[in-house]
Simulated assay, not measured.
Amino acid sequence: MKHFAELTPAAERIVDSAEALLQHVGFNGFSYEDIARQVGIKKPSVHHHFPTKIELVLVVTQRYTHRFREQLLHIEGVHPHAVERLKAYAQLFAATFAQDRRICICGMLGAESDGLPEEVRAQVRRFFRVNLDWLETVIAEGQASGELIETPPAASLAALWLSALEGAMLVGRGWTEAHGPAAVAQALLQSWTEPPTFKSRSSLH
């Protein structure tokens, strides 16, 4: 399999096209004919660079995961506190969704998981593992510093945070009045940073 760092300019244009198509229609929704039309080349030229669709999608997801990890490192370097890191993380999803309601590639592929080759499923699992490990660390540090609620455990909150953002994209794609990832993240984070308030019995009468 090619490594994304070794791509020629022509191959990179193919990968860029495949990435955009994956975000809109998923693995089974596009063909090499679609890519050839977008890039402005002949279909055999796509096959020359990527003999199989599996190989192409593996390179796309490999590059996507690497790029996401780079963004996580950037967030760590810019934002010292857990809450700000979570907000910046949510903004990554919001920025993707703002591009014609695009969806996270691995979220899209995850929805198609049962119909995907094992190699692609493994790469999708790797993406989610990278994200969940990073989120768990950030949330655990936020709990230790008192920024975030102490329970549930950091691992559970990490899974909730990622699921909420991925889900906001999917719901937002199908329901135009739905809130996007940024609004969902803001509402969720508010419940993690503010203690619950309880009305007294007398105030209920």
Rank of each mutant, 00 (worst) to 15 (best):
V59W: 13
E33M: 08
A95W: 12
D114C: 13
R101S: 13
V25G: 07
I54V: 14
R126G: 07
V25D: 11
R37E: 14
F27A: 10
R125M: 12
L116D: 01
E118V: 08
Q123C: 10
L148Y: 07
T151K: 08
T96C: 06
V57P: 14
E136G: 09
T151H: 06
W134H: 02
H81V: 12
R85F: 02
V138L: 04
E112Y: 13
L92A: 10
E119Q: 07
Q23Y: 05
C104N: 15
E119Y: 09
S45Y: 15
R129C: 02
L72K: 00
H49F: 08
K42S: 15
G142S: 03
Q62L: 11
T96V: 09
E119V: 09
T61P: 14
G107C: 06
F93I: 00
D114L: 14
P80Q: 00
V57I: 15
E141V: 07
V83I: 12
E119G: 10
A98H: 04
N28G: 15
V39G: 15
L56M: 04
K43D: 14
F68H: 11
F127S: 13
Q91F: 05
K43Y: 09
V124T: 08
P44W: 03
G77F: 01
G146K: 00
R121Y: 12
L116K: 03
E136T: 14
E33V: 10
A88F: 00
V138C: 02
S156R: 12
R121A: 12
H47A: 14
K53N: 01
F30M: 07
R102W: 04
S156L: 13
T151L: 11
I35D: 05
A95L: 09
V130D: 00
G110H: 09
H66S: 15
G142C: 00
R69P: 04
P51W: 08
T65M: 10
T96S: 03
T61R: 09
T65Q: 11
K43C: 14
A144T: 13
A140G: 07
I54K: 15
C104I: 14
T65S: 08
A90V: 02
K53E: 00
A82F: 06
H74G: 02
E119I: 04
R121H: 08
H74Y: 01
T151I: 04
P44I: 05
N28D: 15
R69T: 10
P51F: 01
P44L: 05
G110P: 15
L148W: 06
F127C: 13
Y64Q: 12
R63F: 00
E55P: 10
T151G: 03
E55C: 09
R101V: 04
F30N: 04
P117T: 03
Y32H: 05
G26W: 05
I103E: 03
L72D: 00
P153G: 06
G142V: 01
A140L: 07
A154E: 05
E141A: 07
L109R: 04
